[in-house]
Design a binder for these strands. Structure first.
Lengths: 193, 193
DNA sequence: CTTAATTTTTGACTTATATCAAAAAATCAT
DNA sequence: ATGATTTTTTGATATAAGTCAAAAATTAAG
């Protein structure tokens, strides 16, 4: 079993944006808690304030909310990405999002208090957060663009392109709610291809 | 004419997120250049790398791109908001966005080099950027949610709510492209109300 | 394995919204 | 002001995609 914790990957992720000093590496190592979840576990519930952020080393998670009794996927997160309920985690307030796993998932867990400590003692962590957020920001802009003026088919194609490593691992119903199209429509689109 | 520059507003904006030291205030004052644009001026063109960010003190701007020869509005920015071509400005690369003014607009202009200087010498500026970005991030999430599973009418209503201070100042065609609905449809929605 | 539960597909029908075209209204320029 | 642009509205029609319902396929459970 590859159930071994490697800070390698997460450090490499940080180093895409900042240089990691030895002391920061140390503090990170002390605070990052390695966890394994099995498929289908609910990691965060909307009823709670989000206290933890997860860096996915292996596996797949989704952020979703409930509308008219149905689960609507907001986005998917896979290897080398952080996942949390953004506003709930950053502002320590309630929000609508739940998080669960779509596969067995290995990740590092970082507590909000530990993150605050890191922000307060390592200015480069602020920079890291700003820059990595910028990356996500760009993806959001693209997504907003792709949602307007595109047919259901184009939406699905764009989805397969941006999520090409993981799109085949996700049940159809979750993809359709993510894209904002009916499950039946997505099924037909897939069939014709 | 109220064509007077006040750092009051922009400082208050910063202070929603961080405490401004006197030395940072000084550096900001030295670097922020007050500018006035008249209605319809193109402030940034997609053909160029974005070198400047504008903090709007009074007025209204829009970020848009060209698709099939038509202008598609990505978003609007009004009083007490920054506007730039995000990826172009932060990563100094080309992107698709143009920016122009919808009204006579008074703003502070900050050069990318000056911002880099501030980031390098004032860690609290990194924090400011991270936190304020978080706010915009939240708006984006809401917008993405509002675009899926909503009728054209609901989209328009949501728009009027979130942009309630400025929605009546914006031409219908720009609103429709922002919402991703046909101009004719939006006209009919407005009429029935 | 066999049955039960869940997810996906297929079919028939409906509807919201896009498109095309032209008239009306508003804004701009001389 | 007056004519010329530009923007918005109105009308007729087409179509992509939603909805409802049931069958097929897949996955989970005993």
């Amino acid at each position: 079993m590859a159930n071994i914790e490697h800070t390698d990957e997460i450090f490499r992720h940080f180093e895409k944006y900042i240089r990691l000093s030895d002391s920061l590496k140390n503090e990170l190592t002390n605070r990052l808690v390695f966890k394994t979840f099995k498929k289908g576990e609910v990691i965060h519930k909307a009823a709670n304030i989000c206290k933890k952020s997860f860096f996915i080393q292996k596996g797949l998670m989704r952020t979703y909310f409930i509308k008219d009794g149905k689960e609507i996927t907001e986005y998917f997160s896979a290897e080398n990405e952080w996942i949390n309920s953004p506003r709930s985690f950053m502002q320590q307030q309630l929000d609508i999002y739940n998080i669960d796993t779509l596969e067995q998932t290995e990740c590092f867990c970082l507590n909000v208090n530990d993150l605050v400590f890191l922000f307060n003692h390592f200015p480069e962590m602020e920079r890291y957060a700003r820059l990595s957020m910028g990356t996500v920001f760009g993806h959001f802009l693209e997504r907003i663009t792709s949602m307007r003026f595109t047919t259901a088919k184009e939406k699905y194609q764009h989805f397969c392109e941006t999520y090409h490593d993981i799109y085949h691992r996700i049940p159809l119903g979750m993809v359709s709610s993510y894209l904002g199209i009916a499950q039946e429509t997505l099924s037909r689109i897939r069939a014709e291809k």
